[in-house]
Amino acid sequence: GEDIDKYVKVLSGGEKSRLALAKMLLEPYNLLVLDEPTNHLDLKSKDILKSALLQFSGSIIIVSHDRDFLSGLTHKVIEFKKAATKTILGDVNEFLEKRKLEKLSELNKSTLSSGRKDNKGVSQNKLDYQQRKEAEKAKRKIENKLKKLESEIEQLEDAITQMDAQLADPETHEKVVSNPDFFTNYENHKKQLHIIMEQWEEVAEMLEN
């Protein structure tokens, strides 16, 4: 249609992402590095990208919070923790199973909790009573913000999981596919999850510092 005559500068964020991915997959590369590749992609585009990557014969390094996209796509998971890396064989589901976690967001909570314990004694020894009191007040405020964001992340992840299940279920697939609002809501959930995950990382960094 008319879309093929559009200039790149007038494309939406999702259209630019799809164009960049299509261009990349047509090049004879043997290594792909993808940073949150499913951002701005709808369900159909995400499935097409995953299928193309599964057929890719080279190596792929992916940074993503999208568990559904990562599932079955990778053979190794590299965890960054305390200025060190740890390699776990298997895909994201096997990694979470070994860590006894259900969601990727729980991994962030676990790492942050460990960091809090390591820094607790040092900070208290350095501060006098008044400074410590003010610092603890500020810390509680940040922790409350963090808990609120974690709750929002969990709600969005649950909503996305339920929508994925509806799409995968033959009994509900036709009904949800015929509803245009379903895909709009799905993409809004994905975008909102990405925004809140970024906010969580910023607040978590404030707490660690």
Rank of each mutant, 00 (worst) to 15 (best):
L21V: 01
L207A: 09
H173I: 03
S113M: 07
E136K: 07
E27D: 04
I4Q: 13
R67K: 04
F56A: 07
D118L: 11
Q162T: 06
K81W: 03
M206K: 11
G121P: 00
M206G: 01
R99C: 09
K148T: 12
L49K: 07
K120Y: 13
E171N: 14
F182V: 00
K76R: 15
D118Q: 15
L11E: 01
L53R: 09
G58A: 10
G72R: 09
Q55W: 07
L127F: 13
S114K: 06
D5H: 09
H65F: 06
E205T: 03
E157L: 05
H189I: 04
L167I: 07
D47F: 11
E94R: 13
K6R: 14
E157G: 03
D3G: 09
D128Q: 12
N185K: 13
A83Q: 15
N119T: 07
S151Q: 09
I60H: 06
A138Y: 08
D68L: 12
I62V: 15
I153G: 03
F69L: 11
E106N: 06
L25S: 08
E102M: 03
I153D: 00
V77E: 07
E143R: 09
H65C: 12
N125A: 12
T87D: 02
L107A: 07
L149V: 03
T184P: 01
I48L: 12
Q124T: 03
N185G: 11
K98Y: 10
E79N: 08
E79K: 10
H173S: 11
L19W: 07
L41A: 05
G90M: 03
E136R: 10
E198S: 12
V203D: 03
G58T: 10
K6T: 03
E97K: 15
S12P: 02
D66P: 03
D164C: 01
L112R: 05
K133R: 02
D3I: 10
N39A: 08
S110F: 12
Y7K: 13
G121I: 12
L41R: 12
R132T: 11
E15S: 02
E102I: 02
N119V: 04
E27I: 01
E205I: 00
A22R: 05
I196F: 01
Y186R: 10
I196W: 00
E150Q: 01
L32K: 05
E152I: 06
F183D: 03
K23I: 14
T85V: 13
G90V: 06
E2Y: 13
A52P: 11
D164H: 09
D181M: 08
N30F: 09
V177E: 11
T161F: 14
W200C: 08
E150M: 00
L26C: 12
L26S: 13
K98G: 05
K44N: 13
L73A: 10
I195F: 13
E174T: 08
S110W: 06
S71T: 08
H75A: 09
Q155F: 11
A138V: 00
P170A: 00
S113F: 06
K23E: 11
D66M: 10
Y29R: 09
L149F: 02
D66R: 11
I78C: 08
I195K: 14
M206D: 14
T184H: 14
